[in-house]
């Protein structure tokens, strides 16, 4: 392998045959002090996320805020229309007939909460992102089929071309690949 600095290199990627190996590798890499690393799996594996230190998510808060805005917005719209902008006296019933406003308020709450869930999830994940260096790794296409990958990035302060490579090889992977930027 030609000696070079990290220029042009995004990280080192190890391929695993099964999720158990990946979970073990994730734990070891974290224990070794690596922080800029990510795992890629064909389906969600809670243990991997935990091993890599992904606890909690901002998403529930985002959805809660979205829902509250939806409720206030929906009720506010109906109140403003029915009481202020376009009051209609129907048989002497109160203008602010809030009971009749519940269904629409409910729907706008759900709508805004759902939109925040989806857009929030995409935003937190930095999607859409058509290009990402990990796609350069050979065999990475299998991450969406049946293979499990762990990538340690050069951006990690502990990254060292030789040291990291020997560490990764010690994890018993099916293969180790350089990931070009």
């Amino acid at each position: 392998m030609e000696p070079r600095r990290h220029v042009g290199l995004y990280g080192l990627m190890a391929e695993f045959d099964n999720s158990e190996q990946l979970i073990r590798a994730s734990h070891e890499a974290r224990a070794k002090g690596y922080r800029k690393l990510d795992a890629f799996t064909p389906y969600p594996i809670e243990e991997v996320s935990e091993a890599l230190g992904h606890h909690g998510s901002k998403l529930p808060l985002i959805v809660l805020i979205g829902g509250i805005l939806g409720a206030l917005g929906g009720f506010g719209l109906q109140y403003w229309v029915s009481v202020i902008e376009y009051p209609l006296n129907v048989g002497g019933r109160p203008l602010n007939s809030w009971i009749a406003f519940i269904p629409v308020t409910f729907e706008t709450t759900i709508l805004l909460a759902s939109l925040s869930a989806v857009l929030g999830m995409l935003a937190l994940n930095g999607l859409p992102k058509p290009y990402h260096p990990v796609f350069n790794a050979e065999r990475f296409a299998l991450a969406s089929r049946d293979r499990y990958f762990l990538c340690i990035e050069t951006a990690d302060p502990g990254f060292d071309r030789q040291g990291t490579e020997s560490f990764v090889k010690g994890l018993d992977p099916g293969g180790v690949y350089e990931v070009e930027n």
Partner: peptide, 20 residues
């Protein structure tokens, strides 16, 4: 949209799916 199955992404994804 550039989905790559990252563990960090799955984490938010599952939360979003359950909330939905």
């Amino acid at each position: 949209m550039g989905w790559r199955g990252s563990a960090a992404h799955w984490h938010n994804y599952e939360t979003a799916y359950l909330l939905l």
